[in-house]
Amino acid sequence: MALMVYHMYVESIIVYSNGRKVMKRKAVVLRGKDNLAAALTDLEAGEVLGVEVDEDAVSVTLVDSIPFGHKFSLTDAKSDSAIMTYGEIIGKATTDIKPGQHIHVYNVARWVKE
C-alpha cells in the first residue's frame, strides 16, 4: 500500500489589528501553505492585520473591505498562479492580486490540470 506524507495541520491566527493586540481572532489561515486568509468578522479596508504563519510574521494592510466568510490575499499572487486554501488549489488568479485584496469569483478562475 502506497503511503503518502501529508503536511502537518498548520493553522495560524491573526492576532493583531492596527498594531493593537486583539483578543478575538479576525481571520484564519487554514493551512500553512495557503496564500489567503478568510475573515471571521467584517473587516474594513485600511485595517492592518498581523499574521503568524509557521512562526513567520507577516503584516497585511487590507486594500478592500472583506465581509465575514470572504477571503483576502496574503501574498503577491501573479496572474495564472494557484490560489490555495485548506492546503489545496481552489483556482487560479486571472489577474495580479496584491496582499490585502479581496479574492473572489471576479479574480479567480477554474484551475485546469495540465
Binding site: 475573515a39 465581509p67 473572489h104 469569483v105 479567480v108
Partner: peptide, 18 residues
C-alpha cells in the same frame, strides 16, 4: 454560496471534507 464568500466548487467541497 458566492454571496457567502465561496469562490469555487473545490473550495466548497474542501470545507465539507475537512
Amino acid at each position: 454560496n458566492i454571496a457567502a464568500g465561496l469562490t469555487s466548487i473545490e473550495e466548497k467541497s474542501l470545507g465539507a471534507i475537512v
